[in-house]
Design a protein around this nucleic acid. Structure first.
Lengths: 110, 110
DNA sequence: TTGGTATATCGCAATAATACGATTAAATTA
DNA sequence: TAATTTAATCGTATTATTGCGATATACCAA
């Protein structure tokens, strides 16, 4: 209990859920939007832009990186984070495939 | 702590995150997929289809309903759940708008 | 080498999410 | 009415998430 039973779902269902979960926090949405604007991709800039503490931002960046949405590049003392464009395309495909379902013309009861 | 600081984010960011969070569990993904196929939308069918206990499914259905993704219709002793097609279109628009961002041709450092 | 800067990690507190047994509520059926 | 069926809710155990202060690490500059 308290633990998602991933093993009873398909790989596709788990993948959709994992991606959605990574985007299921406003800070991570804000980070992704900021990286797309690419005004700056330095961690410290994200900290001052978004109003959360540095360790918190760092943790969110880690989660986005684990799912593969972003990648980081060390530049001296700072780290530049960017959208992984290739991965983003793949994720887009997965999510849009899920979103584009059409209701079957079967027994609609409501 | 342990509490998301929604107030420091925009309405749009919170909306994207809320929707994504609702889809951030494989059981809820499976429920939505099943309702789209519309083979059956009765709660009990979802329970036997997905391998989770009835209270657990009921709880996931409640979450999907709170976000407005699905709606339920009482039919005798059972309840028929369906995708809220109107809401789904709106959600699709929000998420696709987010997914369709293009990388700014600025200072790509990675 | 010493000091400053930037980021990651650790540890912790508080809250949320997941799952399910037990129970309740409501409608149907016998 | 009594028994059955179906789903929601309650209570609770377990794990996950969120957030941040303190600290560690790594690099640069003087």
């Amino acid at each position: 209990m308290g633990l998602t039973k991933s093993e009873i779902f398909t790989e596709g269902q788990n993948r959709i859920a994992t991606i959605a979960k990574a985007l299921g926090h406003p800070a991570r949405v804000a980070i992704v939007q900021h990286l797309f604007k690419a005004e700056s991709c330095i961690c410290g800039e994200l900290v001052s832009e978004i109003g959360l503490a540095q360790p918190t931002i760092s943790q969110h960046l880690k989660e986005l990186k684990q799912v593969g949405l972003i990648k980081g590049n060390i530049e001296g003392t700072s780290v530049c984070y960017c959208i992984d464009v290739h991965a983003w395309e793949s994720i887009k495909e997965v999510l849009i495939g899920f979103l584009d379902q059409d209701v079957a013309p079967g027994d609609l009861c409501c």
